[in-house]
């Protein structure tokens, strides 16, 4: 059981407060969606939790140890981090890019040790990339590339994974595919914190929703506890209709407040 925990994290840059007294916990075995409008401080909070940004106040710990004090490799072996996707610098093969997920274990491209090669194979298979393994990444579609990045994160075989908008710029089918992959990772015992902009997608896949606005966490709990039309209006400034039938939620966005 791995546990990533922030307590009253505050991040200030100059006079601006990007994150204010944010506390959350991410454990193995749960899929948590982080929701909030652009500029709410989601990415800043994630980076702070990972120990990548400076905290103005509060603490971020991984199993009790401050994340900022972990070495980069140590941290990467315990929490995978999938930032918002940027174009790759070079047209490497798919397998090489997935193999970069083993960086924290000392893997060098082109001469992987057996243990690393097996982890890469597993990740490639899990993300259904076997047919593309030797393709150059500049020949892939956006959806295929998103799967490559997921595979790269899975190859690290870290117990926790933080993914920042992994479904951005994907069509519906590929959004579902990516969320399916994350769900399977969680069902196999992992823990995922994922930033999403689609409330419907979040409620469909996540066990817990964290709602952020203006740098603060407004609510943190299961969809039953936190998903209301009121919440969507407060957080996004949008009128919405929220209905629930059994385990099925329907969220219909109706217009700007």
């Amino acid at each position: 059981m791995t546990e990533l925990c922030t307590k009253n994290v505050t991040v200030r840059v100059g006079r601006a407060t990007l994150v204010e007294a944010a506390s959350f916990t991410l454990r193995s075995g749960e899929l948590v969606a982080l929701l909030g409008p652009n500029g709410a401080g989601k990415t800043t909070l994630l980076r702070a939790a990972l120990g990548l940004g400076r905290l103005s106040a509060g603490s971020a710990t991984l199993d009790g140890a401050a994340t900022a004090r972990l070495s980069s490799m140590e941290r990467a072996r315990r929490v995978g981090y999938l930032p918002q996707v940027r174009p790759l610098a070079w047209p490497n093969t798919v397998r090489d890019v997935v193999a970069l997920g083993r960086f924290a274990y000392g893997a060098a491209l082109g001469r992987l040790r057996a243990r690393d090669a097996e982890a890469v194979d597993r990740a490639v298979a899990a993300c259904d990339l076997a047919n593309l393994a030797h393709r150059r990444t500049d020949t892939l579609s956006g959806g295929e590339l998103a799967r490559v990045h997921c595979a790269r994160a899975f190859a690290a075989e870290a117990p926790l994974l933080i993914a920042d908008e992994p479904t951005a710029a994907l069509d519906l089918r590929h959004q579902f595919q990516v969320m399916d992959l994350l769900r399977r990772f969680v069902d196999a015992g992992g823990g995922v914190l994922v930033v999403l902009h689609d409330v419907g997608l979040a409620v469909r896949f996540a066990d817990r929703l964290i709602w952020m606005k203006d740098g603060a966490i407004l609510a943190d709990g299961s969809p039953e506890e936190t998903l209301t039309a009121d919440r969507i209006r407060t957080v996004y400034g949008m009128h919405a209709r929220v209905e629930r039938q059994g385990a099925e939620w329907s969220v219909r966005i109706e217009g700007v407040v």
Binding site: S72, M73, R77, G80, P83, L88, L100, G101, A153
Partner: peptide
């Protein structure tokens, strides 16, 4: 090699940038 992914993702896989 890791920097192929971009700086933030390279940090994500464990690079001390």
């Amino acid at each position: 090699s890791a920097l192929t992914l971009g700086e933030e993702a390279a940090v994500g896989v464990g690079l001390d940038l």
